[in-house]
């Protein structure tokens, strides 16, 4: 039974449910407090998969969609793919109307630096010295605190203080880390745990940056 509901919710989020089926499902959603959350997950998943801006659905959206459906004229054309798409489109538009109230903008990547002249690389040995912003130990700051130029076998595990000085990872390297864990997906041994630990809430990151008064060669 749950599988059937899940399929219907998925079809509803995709705008592929027949009108009467949609009305029946929306009644169920209105009556069952757990179903709106499941529908929202499908709705969000669909947007993520299509790389669309993601909206949060407000409480009572099912009732709002029902109202839209009731007010829209019922098409009595013969069934078929055109009707399915037409109906689905109307439902999708109703959902969007209900959702726009709480629109959140998607994150926009920071603008990239100006393109540099292309040149053949010359990989030359450079001195291995720490060139990162060194900051004092900060209470709530979490993982972009990495050990600069740690020896090969550093980071012995122990309960207690960090080993060596700490540094705030510059945004470019942070984005590299995020992209790395996204790219390797399930093949990354530590998976999403490090990603979340590496994600520093904005206020904490700003506090860390403000606290690092030493001259920075970080890029």
């Amino acid at each position: 039974m749950n599988d059937q509901i899940d399929e219907q919710l998925s079809a509803l989020a995709d705008g592929e449910l027949e009108r009467e089926q949609a009305r029946f499902l929306l009644r169920r959603i209105a009556a069952d407090p757990a179903l709106p959350f499941r529908w929202e997950r499908y709705h969000v998943a669909r947007q993520v998969l299509r790389r669309q801006e993601t909206f949060a659905l407000r409480a009572g959206f099912a009732a709002a969609v029902m109202d839209q459906l009731v007010q829209e004229p019922v098409l009595h054309a013969r069934g078929g793919q055109w009707l399915r798409w037409g109906t689905g489109g109307a439902i999708a538009a109703s959902v969007a109307l209900a959702a726009l109230v709480l629109t959140r903008p998607a994150q926009v990547p920071a603008p990239m630096a100006a393109r540099s002249p292309l040149a053949a690389p010359t990989i030359a040995a450079a001195p291995a010295s720490a060139t990162t912003t060194v900051i004092p130990s900060a209470g709530e700051i979490r993982p972009p605190l990495l050990v600069p130029n740690a020896p090969l076998d550093a980071s012995p595990a122990s309960f207690g203080a960090e080993i060596g000085s700490t540094a705030v990872l510059d945004p470019r390297l942070q984005s590299y880390v995020v992209r790395h864990y996204q790219a390797v997906g399930g093949n990354g041994q530590s998976g999403f745990v490090p990603y979340v630990l590496l994600t520093v809430p904005q206020r904490q990151a700003e506090a860390a940056q403000a606290g690092s008064s030493a001259p920075s060669q970080n890029r």
């Binding site: 450079a126 291995a128 010295s129 605190l145 990495l146 130029n149 540094a167 530590s190």
Partner: peptide, 15 residues
């Protein structure tokens, strides 16, 4: 573009 900085290395746990 711009001046090169020295090699940088970071470690935390296995990363």
């Amino acid at each position: 573009a711009g001046a090169n900085v020295a090699d940088r290395g970071f470690a935390r746990g296995m990363l």
